[in-house]
Nucleic acid binder design. Structure first.
Lengths: 154, 154
RNA sequence: UGACACCAAUUGUC
DNA sequence: GACAATTGGTGTCA
């Protein structure tokens, strides 16, 4: 049979979330990676950050892990963050053309993170999905991110 | 003796509470009015409402009764609802300036009730107090509100 | 002006 | 512990 869908064994799914307490500027990220029944969870914390930066960082960490292991696979990254999905799939094209100025002609924020994410994105077969908050894996990635806020790095 | 406190005889105290069963959307409000030993209790029920609407309605009913009888008195309204106290003493100023949008840029809910309450509030000498759940009169107003839920209007 | 995410607080009900 | 009503704030984009 011909099909545009690839073999499920060849798909890696990443569910990524960020979290941040604005007052304390204490952030965390969480990811859930799934391939053919195998599941990997990971989390991390960052000080002096924002919720948007954590969402970007979660995606970057997921893609970095995948790149080290399964760079030939098709990847589906799911996140609830419209900021990340729209940014990496649409806005980044304009930003590159307009010297990283946004529609108000102000500098695009978090440029360094966007560039990291873009390089990973272009080096592999990555598909971006806006997820539903009720999805089990997204809920899990969110709680990993939230828990990570309090975890001290060592 | 000089004192900033007015003659107790000139103070009307109102204790107001709301209550609502979300499933049945059946709400009730209860008020206890006290002036120089005289005490008035009143309650009412409303269908298809919310707990916040009932808290507002309780305050509105109390002030309306007072206005009809003792509009020259100093009034102290006590409620356990931070929603009501903060709204009428602080947030409503911003709402008027921002065309009734809240800090999330969403329309302020229960606008009609807030306007009713604001008009009563401005037409008399009203002071707002956040009450402690254990105060006897507040406990009474709460039970009036809860009882009223089941009462059929006639 | 709109959208999305994140955080926090209070009340009420079960 | 879970849901509904509501509010305040910050980070970001178009």
């Amino acid at each position: 049979m011909t099909s545009t869908l690839k073999d499920t064994n060849n798909i890696v799914r990443a569910y990524v979330s960020g979290s941040c307490t604005p007052q304390a500027k204490s952030g965390g990220w969480g990811i859930v990676l799934i391939r053919t029944g195998k599941r990997l969870e990971k989390q991390g914390s960052v000080a002096h950050t924002t919720s948007n930066q954590m969402a970007l960082t979660a995606a970057i960490n997921a893609l970095e892990i995948i790149k080290k292991n399964n760079s030939d696979k098709q990847i589906i990254v799911t996140t609830v963050s419209k900021y990340v999905v729209d940014g990496i799939t649409q806005h980044i094209k304009s930003w590159k053309l307009n010297e990283w100025k946004n529609s108000n002609k102000k500098p695009v924020l978090n440029k360094d993170l966007w560039i990291q994410l873009d390089e990973l994105n272009q080096s592999m077969d990555v598909n971006w999905l806006r997820g539903d908050k009720t999805q089990e894996e997204l809920v899990k990635s969110e709680s990993l991110a939230r828990d990570a806020r309090a975890i001290k790095k060592h």
